[in-house]
Design a protein around this nucleic acid. Sequence first.
DNA 1: CGTCTATCCTGTGGGC
DNA 2: TGCCCACAGGATAGAC
Length: 280
Amino acid sequence: MPELPEVETLRRQLAPALRGLRIEEAEVGDPRFVAPARPAEFEARLAGRTILDFTRRGKYFLAQLDNGATLVMHLRMTGNLLLIDEDTPAPAHKRAEFWLADPRGRAAGSLVFNDPRRFGTAAIFADAAELDSYLDSRLGPEPFGDDFGARYLRDHCRGRKTPIKAVLLDQRTVAGIGNIYADEALFRAEIRPQRSAGRLTRAEAERLVEGVRDALNAGIDAKGATIDDFRDAYGAKGSFQDQFLVHRREGLPCPVCGTTVKKIRCAGRGTYFCPKCQPA
DNA sequence: CGTCTATCCTGTGGGC
DNA sequence: TGCCCACAGGATAGAC
């Protein structure tokens, strides 16, 4: 599932490739992709626009356009962004395609949004104020930013009985964590996923902030995790799935102590942990 | 407000 | 061998 490291892997490839290119034509094949906008209106707003920059906030991609508008895209479960050239056939589950041209007007391939399960979304925001109000109402701080730390996390969790894993999965706590990196971060922090968020000690909050950052950095270094769908912008798989410490490792030995990794259901998600390293 | 559940969607894999 | 059904989960709407 694409989480911050997978989105960041794509962003690092797409930003230099897309910067300065013009969207000659946008084609929305699946109306759900842009809902509630209408495909024709969406396409018209992008045609002829130049991409100034391609950035990320949480798991959202932000394509900044030359008229002050921003194209926002989210991969959700199985979405993917692929760069292809003119004679490469479009992938099987194409939802939208953006044909690109360089500043001299020469064709420069296309950017394809592929998404078997059709959960992925896109929207256009006319200006920075509109964009910021959308993102800020949904997302907490970036995990590598100064405003995410142990103090913030403890304040955020104070008085809450919800499992700490549910709090990590909530994008308003910290932006970009999903099911894989929540499990990996909690293991690194030696905290059981079901622990009541409000009962975290100061030391645990500090370990968790480090665990989140370490897990995300390891994922970025490995160019993301490919469990089934994720591919980078050129179709290559990530390798972080080969370094999972507990996630998807039910019945296998804990890499630290050898105890058998357990699987439970927590926050409505398949959850993996080491019963010994992550005490109740 | 906080918390939990259902919903969207389809490819995959386990069980019979 | 083939069929059916449960399962996977990011974000959000709605229930309580």
